[in-house]
């Protein structure tokens, strides 16, 4: 089943690379433009469960990697498909996939909040988890956690006798 699926993906979508990593994991590398079409194609092939949308900051390569993981609701089908695409780190933008998978909504909000990736077409990009605004979104690799906490907590006035 895997071979026919990968050859069909290769034929339908250009510039797409499929490889098998481990048991029941299919990795597809593709371009940002075809993500919606690819997800729709997989949804029609019964991969109708979006497990997660994630993002990795590859600061050395100056790119963000957006990851979509889809699976099936069918109990006989253990295949998970990991779809990867790279976007520029300078102007990070992706298109929303809510019209294909409705449960992508909080994941895209989280990516927007923690990585500063702009999601075009998202109905509500309001804060999800964080309390305040950050100059650099906190899950980017250039956000220095130790420096931030030092600045935040050392700016509080000290109460009591200083030794």
């Amino acid at each position: 089943m895997n071979e026919s699926l990968t050859s069909e993906i290769h034929n339908t979508f250009k510039n797409t690379k499929c490889s098998i990593i481990g048991d029941n994991r299919l990795l597809i590398k593709t371009e940002n433009e075809v993500i919606a079409a690819l997800l729709k194609f997989l949804k029609d092939k019964n991969f109708n469960r979006l497990a997660m949308v994630s993002c990795v900051d590859w600061i050395k390569r100056e790119t963000f990697e957006i990851i979509y993981i889809v699976a099936s609701f069918c109990i006989e089908n253990p295949l998970n498909i990991i779809i990867k695409t790279e976007i520029s780190r300078k102007k990070p933008e992706i298109n929303t996939i809510i019209d294909i998978f409705e449960n992508a909504e909080p994941y895209e909000r989280e990516i927007h909040e923690l990585f500063g990736v702009n999601v075009i077409g998202h109905p509500r990009l309001i804060p999800l988890l964080l309390e305040r605004e950050y100059k650099i979104p906190p899950l980017r690799k250039d956000f220095d956690m130790r420096k931030y906490s030092k600045e935040l907590f050392d700016s509080i006035p000290f109460i009591g006798d200083k030794k």
Binding site: P127, L128, L129, L130, E131, P138, L139, F143, M145
Partner: peptide
């Protein structure tokens, strides 16, 4: 409205 218990574990784990 989540976020009352956000401790940033995914960031902490990278350290």
């Amino acid at each position: 409205n989540p976020g009352y218990l956000h401790r940033g574990f995914e960031k902490l784990m990278e350290y």
